[in-house]
Write a protein that binds this DNA or RNA. Structure first.
Lengths: 125, 125
DNA sequence: GGGATAGTTCAACAACTGTTGAAATAAGTC
DNA sequence: GACTTATTTCAACAGTTGTTGAACTATCCC
């Protein structure tokens, strides 16, 4: 993934409203939710939600699909995995031994972290 | 991690310049780089770099420390691990079986993805 | 202290973002 | 076709962001 593309994805998640929308859609994967349900659950004005959904769709993190009168939105889990892999590759590909040390220091539950990859020069970064 | 806090971190990475600076600092962890080196390596005007470094420091993703005449900046690897863990927990905690399926579909190298956590209700999310 | 180097802060400005209410589109129901 | 519901687009506006050159602060060296 290129940094230009990655920064667009981070931009999509840089608004608390959009992050909440995205998290809600991830929680409701793979069925997704229609716009009205999102608006109700997050207590957002329809017009404002629509603005943020557009941004999420343009980033690729969310897909929309008409369903009769409704529009159903779904989180793109593959793209989410991509961005996790991107961050992880940035972190560990240079110095696995350093990354390992930090993992032990940090209070993060290891179940939520990727394995430390073996060192090698050319990666998906 | 709260979503308000997470969105601030994503905001810090939402500019291509800042993402490039951060990646460079991650690459040079744990020694970091002084501002002038960053400016030279990324071909940025000092004043503009300073603006972005300030944003990165405020987000917590980067720390600065005076070193004589220079200011040395370092990436906060622990916070980076936190944000990876946050994304991962969002993704998998709901429906591991769904996440697993997507992982197999997506072309992402599994070495860069966290293990699929066992389902349980209350997580670091 | 005076001069050089490293880096930041300031002021100005154009460009972009997020919010809102009003109007428009799209699809179902009678 | 007229009516209702779901959602988006539009126009306006306030607020924020990113860029630049000029001025400032901090540190080192003589």
């Amino acid at each position: 993934m290129e940094s230009r593309y990655a920064s667009r994805i981070f931009e999509a998640l840089s608004s608390e409203v959009r992050l909440d929308v995205f998290r809600l859609l991830v929680k409701h994967a793979p069925d997704g939710l229609v716009a009205g349900d999102i608006a109700r659950l997050l207590d957002l004005p329809a017009t404002n939600l629509s603005f943020h959904l557009k941004a999420l769709v343009q980033s690729g993190l969310v897909h929309g699909e008409r369903e009769g009168r409704f529009l159903r939105y779904r989180a793109s889990i593959p793209l989410m995995l991509d961005i996790i892999a991107y961050l992880t590759a940035q972190c560990c590909s240079g110095r696995p031994e350093c990354c390992r040390a930090f993992r032990e220091e940090s209070g993060v539950d290891a179940r939520f972290l990727p394995p430390v990859a073996a060192p090698s020069s050319d990666r998906k970064a």
